[in-house]
């Protein structure tokens, strides 16, 4: 295996990590009242408000933002791997490149379907921000 192919394989694995991290962030509650950081405070304030739900603006955008980035990162990885397959394709290289490219392709496929589904309901209008303050 030649150096460049090794590099692309390693980098694609690293990008898989980036995709994973972005997905992790996409799922994190961004509501201040749900954050780990506030754990101590929540204990101290028994009647802290209910955390904002994940589908309330702007929290609804957190998931979408990170997922769209993660989709693009995966697209980059697929492109990079494909370009490398054109340039270097001894059997071992091909095997390794396909092996790291495949999960990225799966990510691309799943994420774009997911994002499409989420975009379908009109999101264009200005929503009032939803949030903590609501009744509880």
């Amino acid at each position: 295996m030649r150096g460049e192919a090794i590099f692309v394989v390693l980098y694609s694995v690293a990008l898989l990590g980036v995709v994973g991290l972005l997905e992790f962030y996409a799922r994190q509650p961004t509501s201040a009242w749900a954050s780990q950081v506030f754990a101590g405070y929540r204990r101290a304030v028994p009647d802290a408000p209910r955390p904002a739900g994940p589908d309330e603006w702007p929290h609804s955008e957190v998931g979408r933002f990170h997922r769209a980035l993660s989709l693009f990162v995966a697209v980059i990885a697929v492109l990079l791997v494909s370009a490398e397959l054109v340039r270097h394709h001894r059997p071992l290289e091909t095997l390794a490149l396909v092996a790291v490219g495949a999960p990225h392709a799966v990510v691309v496929h799943r994420l774009q379907r997911r994002l499409r589904r989420r975009t379908a309901p009109a999101n264009g209008a200005d929503h009032g921000p939803g949030g903590e303050g609501g009744a509880h």
Binding site: T30, S31, A32, S35, A52, E56, W57, P58, H59, E61, V62, F65, A125, D126, H127, G128, P129, G130, G131, E132, G133, G134, A135
Partner: peptide, 28 residues
Amino acid sequence: WSFLQLGARRHSPSQTPFPHRWAVMFLA
């Protein structure tokens, strides 16, 4: 994010929506 949501109110009593959706998105 906490900051952005400090202002966030679920039941905005007003018919006027929050006008700065995209400014806030850029800040995010």
